[in-house]
Write a protein that binds this DNA or RNA. Structure first.
Lengths: 267, 267
DNA sequence: AGAATCGCGTGATGTGGGTCACGGATATTC
DNA sequence: GAATATCCGTGACCCACATCACGCGATTCT
């Protein structure tokens, strides 16, 4: 059912291998490949000096050799929960939804991955199956490294292994924040407030109000905080009525951050 | 408030440094130190070829130098949520409770750590504060390595860094299982069933029944699955009545594993 | 040995929010 | 420009579970 050789599960994708000009159709790759990865790296200003930048030249060279690039349309899956791990993906552009679901169709969204993140890292390192499903929610370009190549690379370049450990630590801590959101709050109010604060924490606060984009449906938000779609709708309504925030299309304006925080803190 | 030099927060503890015979009172350390770590390692049969075994001799030597050993009584804290990371602990004997709590006193127990596990790893690697509190629930012996020593060690020995990455991956996946338990089930029945199955999964099944120890109070179980103490008591009662399990003191006998599994699967 | 604490069992009660069931508003397809 | 799907808003219902309250054994102080 799942493709063996190719990174994705077989929906439209355009792959190029690291060495040589591939025969498959290319969309966004540029030559030479050595540059590409560095580009992707540099494109992440908030993650400067991260992951695979500033490695020794041989490591970078090696990286470029084991990396293949591919494009994925909306709706494609990079990997599916339960599949044996094939390797890691480095998200270059676009957003990817990481989710898990139970037998009865219930879905829990763990996070929305942003460019520059590594996907499938824990599974690839530990050798266990992917623990989440990675769905492309907007056209995406990603680099892929197979498990064997990646592990060999890490064995050879210890410095990179340490970086990977750091990345894993942060992945863990992000997951842990999710646990707190879901586990430590009783009311849906509180969960939604936590979620909004967490989500907005990357964005700058301008004289008390924070403005950001929230390109998620109520259904998806519900799946992120462990609530029903209707409850999310109603709670949003409540927040609007209490002048805590405004919503216009997919843009949200937090008008009273403190108010939200008080919902989280106290009872 | 929190001790700077010593691993724990200052309750009774007995420390010996890696090199030289320390002046502080010792309880369980043996000389020479190089052997001790290997001992601890070997003492973990189910984790053979793990973490720090089978490293090059120089790495082991170095490890023994940066490790200090300490004993902790019941109730002590190895570290507390929010404290800046001081280093990692390797649990030699005893059990440690990892928990997080919210401002209003609500507590969520993440897991009960067993001997041979590393505690405080994500925080130490990433440099962020400890994300959980580690409470000793039965007399415990643990080895400690300071953050700087540990990071330098990893920088020097890339092989060890890779092992650490693997350990982190599994820590992550354990946390993820917790997310699934809490997030993907909406009846308390289901959560308790998931919990019992997970908890018993390490123990052998003898002709359909699994027998294991569950040295946790209902209160603590409640905090692990995100429910109230009374609900846990009642649900246990329900399971007993339905002949799913028996309880005698702290030992639990799962009489009908399939029955529990059906509670998790279907609605 | 009394006292205090802790863990367990159980009843009564109230409610938050899941679920169902619509209807209207946009977006998407043909 | 229908037709269809997707998303949002809202009312009605009701039940699982949190909460409160209390009583009863078993531990552990002192």
């Amino acid at each position: 059912m799942h493709g063996e050789q190719t990174p994705s599960n077989g929906k439209f994708q355009f792959v190029t291998r690291g060495r040589g000009r591939g025969a498959s159709s290319t969309i966004s790759t540029r030559s030479p490949y050595g540059l590409q990865i560095i580009e992707n790296c540099v494109a992440c200003p908030h993650k400067e000096s991260r992951l695979f930048c500033n490695l020794e030249p041989e490591a970078l060279q090696r990286l470029s050799e084991i990396t293949s690039s591919a494009s994925y349309p909306k709706g494609a899956s990079l990997f599916v929960e339960g599949q044996p791990a094939r390797g890691v993906f480095i998200l270059c552009s676009g957003h990817v939804k990481l989710s898990t679901s139970s037998a009865d169709g219930r879905t829990l969204i763990l996070r929305i991955s942003e460019p520059c993140e590594l996907l499938g890292l824990p599974a690839t390192i530990s050798g266990r199956p992917y623990e989440v499903t990675a769905n492309v929610i907007e056209p995406t370009q990603a680099n892929f490294m197979s498990q064997v190549d990646f592990l060999n690379f890490l064995k050879e370049f210890g410095e990179a292994a340490l970086r990977v450990a750091q990345e894993l630590s942060e992945t863990y801590q992000a997951a842990f924040a999710e646990i707190r959101t879901i586990g430590l709050s009783h009311s849906a109010r509180e969960k939604l407030a936590r979620f909004l604060l967490e989500w907005s924490s990357n964005h700058p606060s301008e004289n008390g109000t924070i403005r950001f984009n929230l390109a998620l449906t109520h259904e998806e938000i519900a799946q992120m905080i462990g609530a029903s779609r209707e409850t999310v709708t109603r709670t949003f309504g409540e927040f609007k009525k209490n002048n805590l925030l405004q919503v216009k299309g997919s843009s949200v304006i937090l008008k009273n951050k403190q108010g939200l925080e008080s919902l989280v803190q106290g009872n």
